[in-house]
């Protein structure tokens, strides 16, 4: 199986081509971890880069994410017994009072495509639900979204609740959304801020790498 061709199918958002390529690669004896790590995750990184350069837009992101999801479903049975570890566990959601979902969903999809285990709580999520889900799942990072000036207060309350919940030294919160700025993020005590789905992946990777370095 030509992994370059498989990667191209993923970057092109060709779900049928991607799943056919994954099946062929597995049949040839490639490990699920190698297909994921050497081909599919780099493919999604390329999709993120194209989005950052305004060569890709929301539909292209969604199409590649859909292809990635279908590919990962095929790899899951083998991955589960292989000792493969996700890049990290992340809880995502739009804060209480805000129904805007698509931006946060794009971030969640891009994180999954980059090897993260993501729990997407959807929109209009109360602070306590973020706290409980982070605690129960063992997630080390929560991502909060808000599209309205009027729900920035809920975002601030949620960040506070998460920090007060004692979720561990390595626990981090990132925020984003139309009215959110880096200055606001810093003021409410968030650990990171991202402008869009692609930069959110970079911020999450940096935060998790930094905590791993500190731990090491």
């Amino acid at each position: 199986m030509d992994l370059k061709a498989l990667k191209k199918c993923l970057v092109d958002g060709d779900a049928a081509g991607t799943t056919a390529g994954v099946k062929a690669a597995l049949a040839e004896g490639l490990s699920a971890a190698d297909i994921l790590g050497d081909c599919l995750i780099p493919g999604m990184e390329e999709v993120g880069d194209l989005f950052s350069r305004a060569e890709y837009f929301v539909p292209e992101l969604l199409l590649s994410a859909r292809a990635m999801t279908q590919a990962v479903e095929l790899l899951k049975p083998e991955l589960s017994g292989s000792g493969y570890e996700a890049a990290g566990k992340v809880v995502m959601g739009t804060v209480q009072g805000d129904m805007h979902d698509i931006g946060k969903k794009l971030v969640a999809m891009m994180l999954e495509g980059n090897g993260f285990d993501v729990i997407d709580l959807g929109a209009d999520v109360p602070a306590q639900r973020f706290v409980e889900t982070a605690r129960e799942s063992g997630a080390t990072l929560v991502g909060l979204s808000s599209l309205l000036s009027t729900t920035l207060g809920a975002m601030e309350d949620t960040v506070k609740a998460l920090h007060e919940a004692g979720l561990g030294e390595d626990f981090r919160v990132i925020v984003g959304g139309a009215p959110v700025t880096a200055e606001f993020a810093s003021r409410i005590g968030a650990d990171g801020y991202a402008d869009d789905a692609s930069s959110a992946v970079a911020v999450v990777k940096d935060l998790i790498a930094a905590t791993a370095t500190n731990a090491g």
Binding site: F57, P59, E60, A178, D195, D196
Partner: peptide
């Protein structure tokens, strides 16, 4: 549009 560009491509 959204923050960093149009939601779909200019071509669309």
């Amino acid at each position: 549009g959204f923050f960093s560009g149009t939601l779909v491509s200019p071509a669309v």
